[in-house]
Amino acid sequence: MSARFERNQRAGADVPTSSMADIAFLLLIFFMVTTIFKLEDGLPVTLPKAAAAEQIAREKVAYIWVDRAGRLSINDNIVELKTVGGIMLGKLGANPALIVAFKADQQASYERMADIMEELKKVNATKVSFSADFEPRP
């Protein structure tokens, strides 16, 4: 038996690139579709700055907007202080791990904030977060 070794034939090293464009466009369209644009606008506020600001899971958060003049907004509606407790109680029922985030203007009066926190305490919405723009400090 005479074994004859044939010289390995080099395979043509072609990567089929014709479908690459399809893949890229698919990804592009996927990201475009899944991007959620911010719908809620709340009130125009200038957030205070903080270095210790930590990240919070967005799905747990309910926002209360407080502007400089002390106006309150929840879910894009201007609300009265007295109704805050009721609204938060409803949200708390849907999500017991709810965190109430204050999107409050840095020049809002502390009295207003204290009043809102009192309302929250009444309905046991005790987890709060003071939204702030992250600004590192030396």
Partner: peptide, 18 residues
């Protein structure tokens, strides 16, 4: 160019009313 606007804030637990 997509900016992920993560929620950032100072968390605190208020005392319970009861």
């Amino acid at each position: 160019t997509t900016i992920f606007n993560m929620e950032k804030g100072l968390s605190l637990v208020l005392p319970n009313s009861e």
